[in-house]
Design a protein around this nucleic acid. Structure first.
Lengths: 344, 344
DNA sequence: GTGAAAGCGCTAACAG
DNA sequence: CTGTTAGCGCTTTCAC
């Protein structure tokens, strides 16, 4: 007999109740046409009465689709401590939000993974090779992250957030960082600032490098060949101490470009502590347009990075690669915009 | 023939190469004894040469284990916007970190889910019923979150972060909030503070309520029956404005207990802006011992909540429920400790 | 100690 | 338009 123990109802059960075959039930469940309306009706009723819900493993086994993707946070330091730091960054939150927004309507679920150690990296690729996920979405905290290379070598579908430091045949989504930096420079120059400095991000990240060099080049084009910089780490406290160093080393400062909003927030704080007014004494421009940017005092003028859209695009690209394994690696570069608020 | 297309190698392939049967390979893979050492050797070699990696769907189909759990962020508002906010809170990062730390060595993966709408909630329980995950770990932002009730009704293994507002037969992990609040009160009293106020969290959360009433009761026991409060929302800016209100309404204030560190940080900022010194003029005690607490100026005296351990315990409890469906719902309440730094 | 065989629940040809 | 028939890759009795 097939009326077993509690085990949740299967297609077979639904079929029996509806008085049709498993195949027909399957067709109805998967929304395939060519099924008489009356039968569809009967099947749906049967599904409801037995409380049927399709078994994902069985389905995956035959469709060869997991309906899941790995959301990998990579190279953010190592071991436990890092975990908290990465997730705590509002940046990750926005990216995750954008990805979920795209994946959800498509019934694809993100599996959170950390890839800080060689073993963890192997685990990520094994995870995909064993069919637990159809591909990987990776957010690296380091330009030298070896994961993209491993993914490419394994021939696993993957999309990166940001261009990797060294070329890898993998799709990625990025922002035109240099343009963003130029926007910031333009604003500062437009506001008549002559002694401008910058607080840069972690030098290992291509995004940091591009923002720094892009800013310097734009300033140079405007006749300001010398732009000192203090290195930060993309955190509020990092920005705060960088700003302090800048104030100490360059007393006459009247403009600052911080490579992200968190550091800009720290800079604002340091400036306030020193009794310097923003934007009167020192104008400040941030980068990202993080949620907190509008809450700063004064509200932060910043370069907006459409993170949610970029994140959604990552997801879209990944699913495209999953659907068509032959697809060439591509890159999508978004344009930043300047959001003018009170700080500059 | 079985030498098909590229399709990744299966047990069959390994068996052929090793010259044994599928069953034997399976035993070796799953570390079951009763296999001659020499054969184990041969199998392992074969696994390596063909690059075998077990197919998770096939395995799940028979073992009835997904090897995954849903990590649900629930009731944090609704729709897209919320997503970013929740993840951005350092609180979520630490919890996620603690969970991952426990799950990883056990080869269980967390699938990120949001449950803000009724449909999203149904999706969560369907997700588990279809075998995509073995259970749910849920972090609610609202005491009235309906998800725990649905989970319990569906008989799905689940563990909550924090006691639900209304009793639900579900396991949860919590902190002794009242003891934590008493610790804060004790410190303030010990430092001779006589005009003490508190910045409370979202009133809908049991944790907020317990910290508030626990603090008031402890203060009352020390002879301070009146403790005004200003409501915050667990964010820095919320704490900042609450502090401003408190200063305005209660000029003589000399001590403040903020229901979390983010708000304490905001309070510090508001106090500094008003030219009040901490701890000389006003002593401040926070709650959580967030990573940023030590970075504040002055470093924050706070009530430490062992979030990572609590999170790990959630995961442990969930796996226990998965292994033994008959297990009764239990609760594990952790004890907070006081971390004395500069602010009080 | 090892192999043969029976499914787990589902989808996808292929007939009819 | 619907049913029959094969498996997907793996674990797991049950014999040997």
């Amino acid at each position: 007999m097939s009326t077993d123990l509690p085990g949740s109802p299967t297609l077979e059960d639904v079929a029996r109740v509806a008085g049709v075959s498993r195949a027909t039930v399957s067709r109805v469940i998967n929304g395939i046409r060519n099924v008489a309306p009356e039968i569809q009706e009967a099947v749906n009723r049967a599904v409801a009465t037995v409380g049927y819900v399709p078994n994902r493993a069985a389905r995956s086994l035959v469709t060869r689709r997991a309906g899941a993707v790995a959301l990998v946070v990579s190279g953010a330091g190592d071991e436990r401590p890092s975990e908290a730091r990465v997730f705590a960054d509002p940046f990750f939150g926005r990216v995750a939000g954008g990805i979920l927004g795209f994946l959800r309507p498509r019934a694809v679920h993100p599996v959170l993974m950390l890839a800080e150690t060689p073993e963890a990296r192997d685990e990520v690729i094994a995870f995909i090779r064993q069919g637990s996920a159809d591909g990987a979405l990776v957010v690296s905290a380091h330009g030298e992250d070896p994961l993209p290379g491993l993914l490419a070598a394994a021939g696993v579908p993957a999309v990166l957030w940001g261009r990797p430091a060294r070329p890898v045949p993998i799709s990625y989504v990025d922002l035109d960082q240099r343009l963003g930096a130029a926007l910031a420079a333009g604003r500062l120059v437009e506001r008549g600032r002559r002694r401008v400095a910058t607080i840069s991000g972690p030098p290992g990240l291509p995004a940091s490098q591009d923002r720094l060099s892009g800013f310097r080049e734009a300033m140079a084009r405007s006749g300001h060949p010398y732009v000192p910089d203090a290195e930060g780490d993309f955190s509020v406290t990092g920005g705060e101490s960088a700003m302090r160093r800048l104030i100490a080393d360059h007393p006459g400062l009247d403009g600052v470009f911080a490579a992200n909003d968190l550091m800009a927030e720290g800079a604002l704080r340091a400036l306030r502590d020193r009794g310097l007014r923003v934007p009167e004494d020192v104008a400040v421009v941030g980068f990202d347009d993080a949620p907190a940017a509008a809450q700063c005092l004064p509200p932060l003028t910043t370069v907006r990075q459409p993170m949610e859209e970029m994140a959604a695009e990552m997801a879209r690209l990944l699913l495209a690669h999953v659907d068509d394994p032959g697809l060439e690696a591509t890159s999508r570069v978004f344009r930043p915009t300047l959001v003018v608020r009170g700080s500059a």
